Amino acid sequence: MPILNRQAVAVVVGHPLRFVLQCVRGFRANQGLLLAGAVAYYSLLSIVPLLMLVVVALSHVIDPAELLDTIAHYLEWLVPGQSRAIVTEVAHFLEHRDLVGWFLVLTMLFFSSLAFSVLESAMCVIFIHRAAIRKRHYLASAILPYCYILCLGVGALIVTLVAGSLQVIGAESVRLFGVDWSLQGLSGALLYMLGLSGEVLLLSSIYMVMPVGRLSWQHALIGGITATILWEIARHVLVWYFSTLSQVNVVYGSMTTAIVVMFSLEIGATLLLFGAQVIAEYEKVVHGTPDVVTQLTAPRQEAR
């Protein structure tokens, strides 16, 4: 089978601006900003308990300082400028992990799963053309968030080990033509590529698992790459804004961290759902949905 549907690709490539406008119209029709606000709110409630669970579990096999440093580095991608504040709270909790009981663990598991549950509901709205045909069993929806938490823990373990190896490489140097060449720049580039690749894979996995029904990995990858590119642009803009123009600390005072994290999560959730909308619109083109294909191709046919 071809990796992508040739006719659908031809339609999208032939009318890229119209396809983007179609995605924006579909996103607005699905109340995408409202859905993103709900996802961002529950993500704010989930992020700290989720990090606490991951750190407490992995601290038995990885040095806690190295683990927290790696999490802080990549958490900066999600909440620019505020990762250290979140990691500080997680580190404080880690110092008292001996006091963690089963009730607290269950409570953190519940709050950690909230964002995934709301995200699944938001995906159902965007992929309504699938949900109308096939329903997901309620037990699968209940177990899915916890399976994702487990996968995130395994991913954090792998990323920490690889990042530690790359940092060791960065401390080395190569002697060539009588000159010592430091590998620090190479290590930094590899760390960035590791984070970027992990971001694409994480988003693509969300698009494959969260919506009802089966989604090919090619379509999921389209959404993952789209959301990653948009988030990388937004992330650099946020870093520049908060470091130069923003006066949020003057306006909100002690609430600055919560406000900035919420704002970053709102933008991230919006781009995440927009990536899902891109997949949904592309699926409609692949399946030959009349209204979508007509809107994309009608102007050219009229010109003929």
Rank of each mutant, 00 (worst) to 15 (best):
L265M: 12
T257D: 01
A72C: 11
S173N: 08
C124G: 15
M108S: 09
T228P: 01
M1Y: 07
A189M: 10
S173E: 14
T289V: 02
T294V: 06
L215V: 06
L4D: 06
I71A: 06
V168P: 00
L50Q: 04
V159N: 01
L183W: 06
Y41N: 05
S243M: 10
L202W: 11
Y148P: 00
A91I: 07
K284Y: 01
V286C: 10
V55I: 14
D180W: 08
G253N: 09
S187L: 09
G268E: 03
V212M: 07
G170M: 00
H129Y: 12
G101C: 06
L58D: 00
I71M: 11
L161E: 11
L119I: 08
A72W: 06
L45H: 05
L21I: 10
A171H: 12
F93D: 04
V105M: 03
V174R: 09
P299C: 02
L238A: 04
A132Q: 15
W240T: 07
A38I: 04
R134E: 15
V11Q: 06
T88Q: 08
I158M: 12
P80Y: 05
Q247D: 13
G198E: 04
R18G: 08
G275L: 02
A298F: 13
D98Y: 03
C151H: 12
Y42H: 11
L191F: 07
N30P: 10
I62E: 02
R84A: 05
A131V: 15
W102T: 10
S121F: 04
L271V: 07
F127C: 06
G188H: 12
F177T: 11
L21D: 09
V118L: 01
A38F: 07
T226S: 14
A72K: 15
M210V: 15
V159R: 00
V48R: 06
L186A: 15
R214F: 11
S173Y: 12
L99N: 15
E266K: 08
G185R: 15
L183I: 06
V79H: 00
M210I: 15
I62Y: 00
L166M: 09
T244Y: 02
S246A: 13
P2M: 05
V48K: 05
E120M: 11
L106C: 14
A36K: 14
P64H: 00
C151Q: 14
Y207A: 02
C23K: 03
R175H: 14
L68W: 07
A280W: 01
I259Q: 11
L196D: 09
A40C: 08
Q184K: 14
N5Q: 05
V39S: 05
A115N: 09
V285L: 00
A85R: 03
M262W: 04
H287N: 15
G198W: 04
A142L: 11
M255Q: 13
M1S: 06
Q295G: 04
L150G: 04
F110S: 04
E302C: 08
G185N: 15
A36T: 10
Y138D: 07
V251R: 15
G223L: 11
I158L: 15
I233R: 13
H219W: 08
R134L: 13
M210K: 07
F116A: 11
F274D: 03
